[in-house]
């Protein structure tokens, strides 16, 4: 293998977790490769939250018919608004199945930065209980 294809670590996905892992590993001096399936993010072009409401078609009321057609699940997330809908996947192109009685809203981003692009800028301190919440609800093992 050539030097270019030799890495100490390969991080799959450049979202909040992958991005953080890559940062920590590179800071420790490792040679890291980050793989991202989504499209590149160009901040000066793609970041649109400063765009005033009169410059988006429905003035912030969302493109309702398009969302119903293409993003019926993603648009259940409050942040999938008229500005940020492009940072959420197409449900048509990314279908998934769930077990009966076990609903799951799979809210996904598919671009460099993943869902960190649309996170709510709020971080709460977690308790021990939070780390066991799913088990207490009878879902998965820990």
């Amino acid at each position: 293998m050539s030097e270019e294809t030799n890495f100490d670590a390969i991080v799959v996905g450049s979202g909040m977790t992958g991005g953080w892992a890559a940062k920590e590993l590179t800071e420790k001096g490792l040679k890291v490769l980050v793989l991202e399936a989504g499209r590149p993010t160009v901040p000066e072009k793609d970041y649109v939250e400063h765009v005033p409401p009169w410059e988006v078609k429905f003035h912030g009321m969302r493109d309702r018919r398009k969302l119903q057609e293409d993003q019926p699940i993603q648009s259940l997330c409050y942040a999938c608004d008229e500005w940020s809908a492009k940072f959420f996947v197409s449900d048509k192109e990314n279908p998934y199945t769930i077990e009966s009685g076990k609903p799951f809203r799979w809210i996904r981003g598919r671009q460099v930065g993943g869902r960190s692009i649309v996170w709510g800028r709020q971080t709460y301190r977690w308790s021990d209980l939070d780390f066991e919440a799913n088990l207490r609800d009878g879902i998965a093992i820990d």
Binding site: P52, P53, W54, H59, G60, M61
Partner: peptide
């Protein structure tokens, strides 16, 4: 109200 408060002229 939406049209009014999201319009450029009102801003």
């Amino acid at each position: 109200l939406t049209a009014y408060y999201t319009s450029e002229v009102v801003s």
